[in-house]
């Protein structure tokens, strides 16, 4: 089956970019073309959250999002959070709380925590679990992750 690649233009981590891409490729693949590997396809089903990306400031599963859909939109990845050289409060809190082990799921948890804290600056335990229920950590750092989110909320 032949398909046509199309040109898409979007904002990637604050910069205007454009590229040719075919409709069957997902957002994670698109980001890899820009050497961004913080969003990772793991479960491939939107359940583990390793592929989390912000599109127009809203978290999506990059593995379940067609790349062509970001045409005209703004895409933010974990690599952008310390663009000014300073870690975001969430990133800093994840370090202080020791909220990861292997680190593979960490960018996803951090980006989801960003959406959570934007919408609920003082989240309850239930809010934290609700927003992070779509992210899985096989190393089981959940208690530390909850602590990290609370720590970030205080700042």
């Amino acid at each position: 089956m032949m398909t046509t690649a199309r040109t898409i233009a979007f904002t990637l981590n604050g910069q205007q970019v454009s590229t040719m891409i075919e409709p069957h490729r997902n957002l994670v693949e698109l980001l890899q073309r820009f050497d961004l590997f913080g969003s990772r396809e793991s479960c491939g089903q939107g359940l583990c959250g390793c592929c989390t990306v912000l599109v127009d400031d809203v978290a999506v599963s990059g593995c379940l999002y067609f790349a062509v859909w970001v045409d005209g939109k703004s895409v933010t990845t974990v690599e952008h959070l310390d663009a000014d050289g300073t870690l975001s409060p969430v990133q800093q809190a994840f370090i202080e709380a020791g909220a990861f082990q292997c680190g593979y799921c960490t960018p996803g948890f951090i980006l989801m925590s960003h959406q959570l804290l934007k919408e609920h600056p003082n989240p309850s335990d239930d809010d934290i679990r609700h927003y992070l229920s779509g992210n899985l950590c096989r190393c089981g750092a959940y208690p530390e992750i909850i602590e990290a989110v609370k720590l970030a909320a205080k700042r």
Binding site: G46, V60, L64, H130, S133
Partner: peptide
């Protein structure tokens, strides 16, 4: 229902 990311989309 599913999770926040899926509901966003």
């Amino acid at each position: 229902l599913s999770n926040v990311r899926v509901r966003n989309v």
